[in-house]
Amino acid sequence: MAMADSEGPTPAGGSASPGGAPSSGGPSHSGESPFGGGWWTGSGDSIWASTGVNLAAVIMVITGIAGIVEGIAGIAGGDVFAKVGKYAFKLDVTAWGWIHLIIGILLLLAGIAVYGGARWARMLAVVLTGLSIVANFLALPYQPLWSIVAIGLGVFVIWALFSVPDRQESRS
């Protein structure tokens, strides 16, 4: 994404290569963003328009797989999980495993849906990722470091989901 800052305007609809020649023309078209027609303006034809969505989709798929693995470990009842005493959100390690597994599968599927670029998929993805973060926060006493990693991945997903251009609201 940082690469895009140095690229200059990408011709909309063109077959611009990411490493194209630096633009010599003025950057702004009248009435558009002062930054010209880059990925951030949401012009759907730009190669960068899909980059952000792809980023969110890829991290979601990874987070989903991590959740599935976490879930399988929990269902199998491994010794990697700590014994927890009195706890308001106490559940069987197996129950937490199923929760992680199901949320992980949903995240994986939503990540694939996000790849399509639909707006509803992104809203669903934000909600699902939020659920995943809350579940990991609650299950943290059982395996703190896994939960911390999963929460970090989830926050990155949410950032990516909000930071991508919305193709439906293209202003060009």
């Binding site: 009195k86 706890y87 308001a88 973060i133 809350v134 926060f137 949410i158």
Partner: peptide
């Protein structure tokens, strides 16, 4: 993004509070 993050941290803070009010062993 700010809305989503604040709703999320709000929920997390509430659950953190519930666990503490219940005087949990965690």
């Amino acid at each position: 993004l700010a809305s989503a993050l604040m709703i999320l941290t709000g929920v997390l803070g509430i659950t953190q509070g519930i666990a503490a009010i219940a005087n949990d062993d965690v």
